[in-house]
Design a protein around this nucleic acid. Structure first.
Lengths: 196, 196
DNA sequence: TGCACAATGGGCAATTTTGCACATTGCGCA
DNA sequence: TGCGCAATGTGCAAAATTGCCCATTGTGCA
């Protein structure tokens, strides 16, 4: 499945991930402004200087995970069989993508959202989101849709991402003890009726 | 208490310790001859080449822990108050030395002893033991003893180490659920009556 | 208002780790 | 008995990490 990556690259990836996670954890715990690069470096077991070798600043380190997820999701869509209809491909990619990551905990999800709501991060997140929407539209552009107008892929991608956001919001707000995947399924199902 | 060691040195020490522990664990599990340097390096998360940067061979890596303990014990004796009598210093050093390391588990101790009983290790262990005896004798040479003949320090050190070996043997063989420290105390007490 | 100071970004050299090549050694098996 | 091969030790260059440096920026306090 994976290409035979050497020790060097594996360690680099592990360090990058560790730095990202340390940044996220400390930010959720203390707030973005109260976390220093030095504290992150300490938590990740590297020097402050080495932090700079991996990320140019805290924002990069913090959003790295999200950007990874975005890339992975887009790739998952691209990897779906070419003949699969657009909406089905999006849902299937989401499903196999979701099962690859640890099930998020409600409390943590809430705190993370709060932590990420920070001025110096918003612009970047907006841009990421736009890029994701564009890439998803790209990835399903050649697939079958109910009617098949040229503009449709963008609408599809937007609807898909909107469903995702809505599902997360509902999951966070509701009391039921079900995972986010279940809510996502529900909303996707509802939204999907309009696009299949 | 500790000198302000930098990140670099701390990491080096950690790696060296990790390599040693990986060597010990794999040796106990599979036997000295069935453990390759490569396997040790993998288990320690470093490359085979880096192993060579820390130890010249498996023997070194395996006996590193023991040699560390030896050094620590000798140092502990040296750190005792100068006016403390010889045997008391040895016992006190042993006590404070023992409480610094994790309480060994019987099964593990047995396996370790067996694993270390290997031709290519024996000579080195003998030498280490002799050195320890010499260093301990040195460390108590200036201290008060019951009669104070010049040769006495060597006898003292030998008796001390013999007590240690006997205590370990008894501890390994007996069924009682007490730690090795208790047995050591008992034997030291008995042996000590002849030297105080 | 201006200064002291912490945080940061990045240049640079020293040190460490890695990957690779090559020679040597010891052992099992044809 | 001799060959094939895995394991090992080591030289070397590339890459990564660290420590130390200094300039810049932002902030709180005198």
């Amino acid at each position: 499945m994976e290409s035979p990556v050497g020790l060097r690259e594996r360690k680099k990836a592990a360090t990058r991930q560790a730095v990202h996670e340390a940044t996220l954890r400390l930010t959720v715990e203390h707030g973005f402004d109260h976390v220093t690069v030095e504290a992150v470096a300490d938590a990740a077991g590297i020097s402050r200087r080495t932090f700079s070798n991996y990320f140019t600043n805290k924002e990069d380190a913090l959003l790295y995970g999200e950007e990874q997820h975005i890339g992975a999701l887009v790739q998952a869509v691209r990897d779906r069989p070419a003949e699969e209809p657009a909406w089905a491909a999006l849902r299937a990619a989401m499903a196999q993508f979701a099962e690859r990551m640890a099930p998020p905990e409600r409390e943590w999800a809430i705190r993370t959202r709060l932590a990420l709501r920070h001025p110096s991060l918003l612009a970047r997140q907006l841009a990421n989101h736009a890029a994701l929407e564009r890439d998803l539209a790209d990835a399903v552009a050649t697939r079958a849709t109910p009617s098949g107008e040229p503009v449709r892929p963008f609408v599809l991608a937007a609807a898909f991402l909107a469903s995702l956001r809505i599902a997360m919001r509902i999951w966070i707000e509701e009391d039921e003890a079900r995972g986010p995947g279940a809510v996502i399924d529900e909303i996707m199902e509802e939204m999907g009726r309009r696009f299949t």
